[in-house]
């Protein structure tokens, strides 16, 4: 029975990974594609959660609440974009300022630091009512969203505008020389990216049954962890691989966390590991993922030399 309970732990980790993976897609768009380190995300994830929770509690259709959350995130991205392109505030600072301001906005939306959704109709409870086992609804809803989003983002990258957006992250001088307004593409990337992050937050609030003012803390680091784990595990061949890699990375990250928590639950370490220790562990995971490709190259080249 032990093994079955382990598998359920891993399954629930995977569910969280898929839902948080949508945030990873958004961060991938700004951080990797646009080459913009956008710190708005910590605030826009919470914003999504807050909007989604408040509307669900008001009796709005859960899916509509998620779309409204997405829209809220897009507006947060727009603000960061305007701060950066119109007022010429450096990228990191523009994101930090929006994130900071969002703390107040999020508190105002919820009216309190923690907004519970006990016995409310959520997108997950609706599926449960259709007869889908409750342990699987999270994963199913998450996967449906993720598949649709990956297809949409992939198609977007292939359009003229998507192509110009990718080029903006790669070489803005070239885009300007080709008549593209890089400011517009930076704003577009931030809008879509933060929309996805808030969508993830909106789903998360409905999944866990509450929105919390601190739910977005560390979003950027978790997103980076997902992106980097995905890149270490998955090839960078096509955008399909890369986008799917972000989701896989997010799932692997959550499974690692689930396993660490599970082990610590039953054992007597000198220090008992709790959910509060996850931030340190996450930072270590990101550091390992950052260093791993470089280490691999060095190891391989050393190996090749010794082989001769």
């Amino acid at each position: 029975m032990e093994i079955v309970s382990w598998l359920w732990n891993i399954q629930s980790g995977a569910t969280l990974g898929v839902i948080w993976g949508i945030m990873g897609l958004g961060l991938y768009l700004t951080y990797r594609v646009l080459n913009y380190a956008d710190l708005t995300v910590d605030g826009s994830l919470t914003l999504g959660g807050a909007i989604s929770a408040v509307y669900v509690a008001a009796g709005v259709q859960p899916i509509v609440a998620i779309l409204l959350a997405t829209f809220g995130g897009m507006m947060a991205g727009l603000v960061t974009g305007l701060l950066h392109t119109k007022l010429r505030i450096p990228d990191l600072l523009a994101g930090i300022l929006t994130q900071f301001a969002l703390y107040t906005v999020n508190l105002r939306i919820m009216g309190k630091a923690n907004f519970g959704l006990l016995n409310q109709t959520t997108i997950f409870s609706q599926l449960k009512d259709l007869g889908i086992p409750s342990k699987w609804v999270g994963l199913i809803v998450g996967l449906v969203f993720v598949v649709i989003l990956i297809i949409l983002v992939y198609c977007f990258f292939g359009t003229e505008i998507g192509c110009a957006l990718r080029a903006t992250g790669n070489n803005p001088d070239m885009v300007k020389a080709m008549g593209g307004n890089t400011k517009v593409y930076i704003m577009l990337g931030l809008i879509v990216g933060n929309g996805l992050v808030a969508m993830s937050g909106g789903m998360l609030a409905q999944y866990q049954g509450y929105a919390d003012i601190n739910m977005g803390v560390g979003t950027i680091v978790i997103g980076l962890a997902s992106i980097m784990i995905g890149e270490v595990l998955f090839s960078k061949r096509t955008y399909f691989h890369r986008l799917a890699g972000v989701i896989i990375g997010s799932v692997v990250y959550r499974i690692i966390i689930a396993i660490v928590l599970r082990i610590s639950m039953n054992s007597n370490f000198i220090v008992k590991i709790t959910a509060d220790d996850m931030k340190l562990i996450t930072a270590i995971i990101v550091i390992i993922a950052l260093v791993a490709p470089d280490m691999k190259d060095r190891f391989l080249s050393k190996f090749a030399k010794e082989g001769k």
């Binding site: 070239m174 020389a177 080709m178 008549g179």
Partner: peptide, 21 residues
């Protein structure tokens, strides 16, 4: 390095150029 997007394909660069202006 300035005139082209190095991470993108040759055809993507040319397609960008074809849409100049």
């Amino acid at each position: 390095l300035r005139g082209t997007a190095g991470d993108m394909w040759i055809e993507e660069n040319l397609a960008m150029a074809l849409r100049r202006g």
